[in-house]
């Protein structure tokens, strides 16, 4: 910015210089005052909300050696979500104590994998990704096995920690 040279003493020019600077400085403040909340609002979703524990059901409702699709309420669900506030997970009970909780989302591109009980495989309808019953990758394009959720057994209940949509860099 060109400041009026100090040699010039004309009050007119001084006033113009002051006005010019006021416009720039005040304008910057005004932009920041309005802009910070707007940008902050837009970036709001970047603030992570952690997954929460929710009860998936009684332990005994899951037969040993079988895999079941269960529908839960997403613990993070909010206003106006309707059906989208639900979440489905696969619960596999390998033995008395050992459970595996799989996300239904294919690790390739997030399509819903289907459990084919008779074939003992998870198969994705989109690009034919296939996983074995323990969630490991069997064939097709997925880069890894199925996403798994943290879980624990408590007083005969199966508790699962979930909420977010699992993607490659944010698995279950």
């Amino acid at each position: 910015m060109t400041h009026s040279p100090p040699t010039s003493n004309s009050p007119d020019e001084e006033r113009r210089g002051l006005l010019q600077w006021s416009a720039i400085v005040l304008g910057a403040f005004a932009t920041a005052a309005a802009g910070v909340p707007i940008v902050g609002f837009l970036l709001g979703p970047l603030r992570k909300r952690g997954d929460q524990w929710t009860t998936a059901g009684k332990v005994e409702q899951f037969p040993i050696g079988q895999t079941r699709l269960i529908d839960l309420e997403n613990p993070l669900h909010g206003l106006g979500d309707g059906d989208a506030g639900k979440i489905a997970v696969y619960v596999r009970r390998a033995d008395e104590e050992k459970f595996q909780i799989f996300a239904i989302n294919c690790t390739h591109l997030g399509c819903p994998v289907n459990w084919l009980a008779d074939a003992g495989l998870f198969m994705c309808p989109c690009h034919g990704g296939v996983y074995y019953e323990d969630g490991s990758h069997a064939s097709g394009p997925p880069p890894r096995g199925l996403f798994q959720y943290e879980h624990r057994l408590e007083k005969g209940d199966l508790l699962v920690k979930l909420g977010h949509l699992p993607t490659l860099q944010q698995p279950g």
Partner: peptide, 27 residues
């Protein structure tokens, strides 16, 4: 979102910005 989530480093942030949250919902 799964495709966007593959972007190196920024993937998770892009996912959150598209979804407006943690999952596909009203937002």
């Amino acid at each position: 979102v799964s495709a966007a989530g593959r972007v190196p480093f920024a993937g998770p942030s892009i996912v959150h910005l598209i979804l407006g949250g943690e999952y596909i919902g009203s937002e």
